[in-house]
């Protein structure tokens, strides 16, 4: 997902007997569906885990602008260019909402950005893949944003108020992203042979990385029990992945493209598709920093931050000078 493999700060889920009075009262509030707000008491591990999760989610929104930004100057029409700019601008906004939600937990945005740039915080594995042809803008909106929606819709009900509210705003905007992506794919898939081949090529490259977005299979995914008890993770990785596959396969068929997974079959018994797992070794390599674009993405972020320093400093100096002048009058 946009937040993958978030290590919960605690090692195991406490039983009610092991909990302190405040921890028990806290868990009761969550179980009753109440929202936890910034100034409320919360366990340190809840706070630490959320900072990690929301921070990684925010970083993903920001780094996620890079693969699409790559095609803004080469969009096929002025209209497509304007739409793509609006989409990428939305991602910046999503990053902002999420950084602000994280900040309510007592960390500053600059601290989170420093952690990212130092490689101590991650962003989603999906953004370490290159965007090689225009159809990739379609595949990203359709599949990558589609996979993100799968995770973000249930997260609207997450226990932490500011995170939940950020998710509500993000989900509203996200469906524009998915539809604009699918509309690009439709156009390409119905185009000439070369365009159709580009659409198929893009689907082939993004299918398995999209499945990886949900994180490793449940059997190998540790640390999620506590997060689920705290309602900062709502569904398991495999549940969401299955839902995504079931939703996407008919959309592939409508496009007249071939599913990159040749083994995919409908399983009437489980009322879902049986599908092939992505290469999890590749996933762990990408997470470790060895994906096709990891170095390029991080370098681009660091450069943007460094190059923007004089603007940030200049505006702050200007603001101070102005308020000093007002105070003197």
């Amino acid at each position: 997902m946009y937040a993958q493999m978030i290590k919960t700060a605690s090692n195991s889920v406490k039983t009610r007997d092991e909990m302190s009075d405040s921890e028990r009262a806290f868990q009761d509030r969550i179980d009753a569906g109440q929202k936890i707000e910034p100034k409320d008491w919360m366990p340190d591990d809840y706070r630490a885990t959320l900072i990690r999760q929301i921070g990684q989610h925010a970083h993903s929104e920001i780094v996620g602008q890079l693969p699409e930004g790559n095609w803004i100057t080469r969009a096929p029409t002025l209209e497509r260019k304007a739409i793509l700019i609006a989409k990428v601008q939305d991602e910046a906004g999503h990053g902002l909402y999420l950084y602000c939600a994280a900040e309510t937990l007592g960390v500053s945005r600059d601290e989170l950005i420093e952690e990212l740039h130092a490689g101590r915080m991650k962003y989603s594995s999906i953004f370490n893949y290159p965007t090689l042809n225009w159809a990739d803008m379609g595949a990203i909106g359709w599949l990558v944003d589609g996979a993100a929606i799968m995770n973000q819709v249930p997260l609207q009900r997450t226990s932490y108020g500011p995170y939940s509210r950020a998710m509500v705003r993000i989900c509203k905007e996200e469906s524009f992203h998915q539809r604009q992506g699918y509309s690009i794919m439709l156009k390409m898939a119905q185009g000439n042979d070369a365009q159709k081949a580009m659409a198929q090529d893009s689907l082939n490259r993004f299918w398995y990385p999209s499945l990886m977005m949900f994180g490793p299979p449940d059997a190998e995914s540790v640390h999620s029990e506590q997060s689920m008890a705290w309602k900062i993770k709502i569904n398991t990785n495999d549940e969401l992945r299955q839902k995504f596959v079931d939703q996407t396969v008919p959309q592939i068929e409508y496009l007249g493209l071939e599913c990159p997974d040749q083994t995919i079959t409908w399983n009437a018994e489980k009322d879902g598709y049986d599908y092939a797992q992505p290469d999890w070794n590749e996933f762990f390599e990408v997470i470790k920093g060895n994906g096709p674009c990891n170095k390029e993405r991080l370098a681009a972020r660091v450069k943007a931050w460094d190059d923007g320093e004089w603007v940030r400093d200049g505006l702050l100096a200007h603001a101070k000078k102005k308020s000093a002048r007002v105070a003197a009058e």
Partner: peptide, 11 residues
């Protein structure tokens, strides 16, 4: 509706 960072009120 939310929060943001800015150097001054105008921005």
């Amino acid at each position: 509706i939310g929060s943001l960072h800015a150097p001054d009120a105008e921005m």
